[in-house]
Amino acid sequence: MEMKERIYMISAIVEHKPGVLYSVSNMFRRRGFNIESISVGESEQSELARMTITMKGDEATVEQVVKQLKKLISVVKVSILDSENTVARELALIKVSTPDARVRSDVINYTEIFKGHIVDVAHESLIIEITGDTDKINAFIELMKPFGVREIARTGIAALQRGMRSVKME
């Protein structure tokens, strides 16, 4: 029976110390799991970090990923986030060419519609900061392409479950 592939979000609480990101990413590589994105940062407890991993796969693969993550000694807690009850956001910085005033005003207008911010202004370019789910960011980037996108930096998804459900250490 072939199982359907889809995008999964996994939230992992890990020890905040050197080598942890390496052991996690190395495990993904060696077991042939494909990560779409991974983001790491301090969590609500300073000695623990939260990793948000998005990956494409079928149910059995994702189950294995969770088990293999749990097996790593430096990984404290792991959950699959269900997309209905999860807030997932990504931040992107996009540098766009603005050779003349007309382009510049178009870009600024679009940025406002997408609730982005202009965070750097130079003679021939702007840097736009935009947050949202992956679809929104992709849509915005598509919109900017005709103007000339020079550089993009994306953080990957950070996600938390809504309400009182949580993936945290008690």
Binding site: A60, E63, Q64, K67, Q68, K70, K71
Partner: peptide, 11 residues
Amino acid sequence: IDSSEIGKNIK
């Protein structure tokens, strides 16, 4: 005892 062995090769 290793949960990652369960379902890895056979369900």
